[in-house]
């Protein structure tokens, strides 16, 4: 009986996962188009990384905490972050949790265990080490995930965090979303080794996953998460995926990239994942079409709705610098406003 229930739950998990991927892709395309129309200032598309992120997210629990990076929208949607939170941040409107202070794509959703995004890459990694340490110190459940791109593996912060996590044997999953590019620099010019192999030098386990296939990604992610959760120490999990869009809406990848994976093509992780799920009889074209239509309806409706929200009050510029406003900030506020 439990076996049948478990099997049913796993099936639903995969269907939900694909749903989040399609919703995220729909939102991505909507925001990119809106940026070109001048309705959004900036955006870092996430197309091509959906299966990697959602496959991992499917293996995580509610108590797990994530230091995300600026392309992790699919993971956030899958973990239940309302689309409104994402759109409010993209518009930088009055309802944005960070009061319109950051460029689009720098999301925060602390209530959903997403810890916020700085632009300097990999600087969240040492923080993840500290948070994992605090979790162990307090004997709490749950692991910490730190996600980053392939370019981040060249930074001193990556080295510091990997080393410390291993030395202190902490429950961290280092999740490298290797999309092959750091703006215009290909991964071959970033590092001479495969990224997952770097783990060995730090004395931790490294794993490589097919980040284009939801079914395969989930399987590998489960093993990685299980290792970390069982107290055996950190894992470096490298998911191979594609950056199907530009680095950001300010970037033209045709200048340096010749083999761009096109939306809906056979390498597209949504197509790969749909085919994998179809092969094991979990989804069919009819269901996929229904999810697409529903995603489009939700995205259009929410986009128009959140776009109408006015910008934050100018006073907010001076808030949250300190717990209490200093005399210097008070003077500057009174002068400017």
């Amino acid at each position: 009986m439990t076996e049948i229930v478990n099997e049913q739950m796993e099936k639903e998990k995969h269907i939900r996962g694909l749903g989040a991927m399609i919703l995220s892709r729909t939102l991505d395309k909507k925001i990119i188009t809106a940026q070109r129309q001048g309705r959004v200032g900036f955006y870092t598309p996430t197309m091509g990384q959906e299966a990697a992120q959602v496959g991992l997210s499917m293996a995580l629990d509610k108590d797990d905490l994530i230091y995300e990076y600026y392309r992790d929208v699919p993971m956030m949607l899958h973990r239940g972050v309302p689309i409104e939170i994402i759109l409010n941040q993209v518009f930088g409107n009055r309802d944005d949790l960070a009061k319109g202070r950051q460029m689009p794509s720098h999301l925060v959703a602390r209530d959903y265990n997403f810890m916020s995004v700085p632009s300097p890459v990999a600087t969240n990694l040492p923080l993840a080490v500290g948070t994992a340490y605090a979790k162990v110190y307090r004997k709490e459940k749950g692991i910490v995930v730190a996600s980053f791109g392939d370019g981040s593996t060249s930074t001193p912060d990556f080295h510091a965090a990997m080393n410390m996590a291993a030395v202190f044997n902490l429950p961290i999953l280092f999740f490298c979303e290797n999309n092959g590019w750091a703006i215009s620099t290909p991964v071959e010019k970033q590092t001479k080794t495969e990224i997952w192999k770097k783990a060995d030098a730090y004395g931790m386990v490294g794993m490589k996953a097919d980040g284009n296939n939801l079914v395969e990604m989930y399987k590998t992610a489960q093993q990685a998460v299980e290792h970390v959760r069982s107290g055996k120490g950190p894992v470096l999990l490298e998911a191979r995926c594609y950056r199907m869009g530009p680095h950001s809406t300010s970037d033209d990848p045709t200048k340096y990239q010749t083999d761009i994976v096109l939306d809906g093509s056979e390498k597209d992780p949504i197509v790969v994942s749909q085919n994998a799920l179809k092969a094991i009889g979990l989804v069919n074209d009819q269901l996929i079409e229904k999810v697409r239509a529903e995603s489009q309806r939700i995205v259009n409706e929410k986009f128009d709705q959140q776009e109408k929200i006015p910008p934050p009050d100018p006073e907010t510029i001076f808030q949250d610098v300190y717990a209490k406003e200093t005399w210097i900030l008070r003077e500057e506020r009174e002068e400017i406003l």
Binding site: P126, L127, G130, T131, K135
Partner: peptide, 18 residues
């Protein structure tokens, strides 16, 4: 800690935010 100032500070920040 290991000998890494950015790691010490980053780790401390990660504790403080938690």
């Amino acid at each position: 800690t290991p000998l890494v100032e950015l790691g010490i500070v980053g780790m401390a920040i990660g504790m403080a935010v938690y």
